[in-house]
Design a protein around this nucleic acid. Structure first.
Lengths: 249, 249
DNA sequence: ATTCTCTCCGTACGGTGTACGAAATGATAT
DNA sequence: ATATCATTTCGTACACCGTACGGAGAGAAT
């Protein structure tokens, strides 16, 4: 990012990039790339290798340009990641006019979020320093809030309900993606991995200290997959929301 | 990490570090540090500057040793982070014998998780590649499962309920910590930040495309803080679990 | 034809994790 | 007492990272 640019100026610039309003200059050579091509290439790289492996040099190499060329288009790496996030959020279906009751509609947007994070698993590795909202996220938010419009909740409750559902999805997805990434990294399923490690664990862990863990331990190895755990959790969350809604009638 | 060490050997070594079973050697000079001192210093650094600012050189500098000295004690940076996580998890109170009904006990462990993440906000920036469980995490898990022991859930349901609660806490905490870190970074409250940025938003965003967002927009600015949103969400989650439990009686 | 603005990007800087091997320490064996 | 062996410490080096700076060239405006 330009060293003489203030954080606010950088945010404004990033915001304009997100909302697609930067105009082409009339002087100088024409740009050989587009911000969309850069973002798409970065997404492909992150999909293939993970967010920690993403670098400006690698993105530039894939595009056949110098690394410093990218800085003509984006202020810096953090802004590129922000653009990536918003771009993938744009993949989410528009659910403003979804049919069914509030519960069916919330299930829909929750599963949209789950599916998106499985298509782009690097989303769980995004750091906590993201502050700008692009059209992709705004559209998703409109879909989410629309799912519970007109059912008797106050605006504050609506915001809280959506925070609850998206927070739950985020947590569930993180656990699920962790398992998938682990299996890819080790080349072993979770069971195979634990089988290898178990002799070491048995040697050192005082299992009598963990009676409840041990008594559910087999459950964990037989447990349904992450998707089933997600659906189980989602049903509970929605049951809880239903209790709130019923209390308003 | 030792280049000739297999991933399994590294995991075994890290596991032994976590469970505190590595023995001192009888030959050569005595070690000048302990793994505990290294982990504690790393935690302090992460607390002060965030996980992205944590580096082996900075930890070593704080300890007054060479960066390469740390590699005598830990295989690498990723393993150090794993040890950090387990160390802070050990701060969580032991809730095995918590009083009250299942709901009160789940609230307790959920708030323990919330409080821990606010004491060590870098926990939300931990990547997804963590696979070893230390005593800190095992103890926390035993506390969590104990909260819902003996209330009629199957072992699989118990595991799923705890996944739900911890997943929800993780998602909620992430949102809350994001706000806090943002305010620290910009030196502005969220409202002040949006006030600065609003003219730009007003200039570009077609608000008519987001009627539901707009109608709750004021709610979001007046909304209770992250803690209230957390408690709201927790109540809903527990309501949902209660529905499940009641269906078993 | 000249000036101005922009694009591209090489170079350089300061930072990162960590492999390798040397020097010193200190226990063990002779 | 000396030699050998194992360990600790850590400097150096390597490959990688993000990005500041400024130069060369392209192309529009004057």
């Amino acid at each position: 990012m330009k060293s003489d640019e203030s954080p606010k100026a950088t945010s404004v610039r990033t915001f304009e990039l997100m909302w697609g309003v930067r105009e082409q200059s009339s002087r100088g050579p024409k740009q050989g790339l587009t911000i969309e091509a850069i973002v798409r290439t970065a997404i492909e790289l992150a999909d293939a290798e993970g967010l920690t492996a993403l670098s400006m040099r690698k993105v530039a190499e894939r595009l056949g340009v110098g690394a410093m060329t990218l800085y003509t288009y984006v202020p810096g790496k953090d802004e590129l990641i922000a653009l990536m996030i918003d771009a993938v959020m744009s993949e989410r279906p528009d659910r403003r006019d979804a049919e069914g009751d509030w519960r069916a509609r919330l299930e829909l947007v929750a599963r949209d979020g789950w599916d998106l994070c499985h298509r782009h698993m690097w989303l769980v590795d995004v750091g906590s320093e993201r502050n700008l909202v692009g059209p992709g996220q705004m559209d998703a938010y409109e879909s989410e809030l629309s799912a519970i419009a007109g059912i008797g909740l106050t605006p504050t409750e609506m915001v809280s309900v959506i925070s609850l559902v998206t927070g739950f999805v985020g947590g569930a997805v993180r656990g699920a993606v962790q398992v998938i990434q682990e299996e890819r990294r080790t080349g072993l399923t979770r069971d195979q991995w634990w089988e290898q490690i178990a002799p070491v664990f048995d040697k050192y862990i005082a299992y009598e200290r963990y009676p409840t863990v041990m008594s559910t331990g087999e459950a964990e190895s037989h447990a349904d997959g992450p998707k089933e755990a997600f659906e189980f959790g989602l049903a509970r969350v929605l049951d809880g929301i239903e209790v709130l809604i019923r209390s308003r009638r």
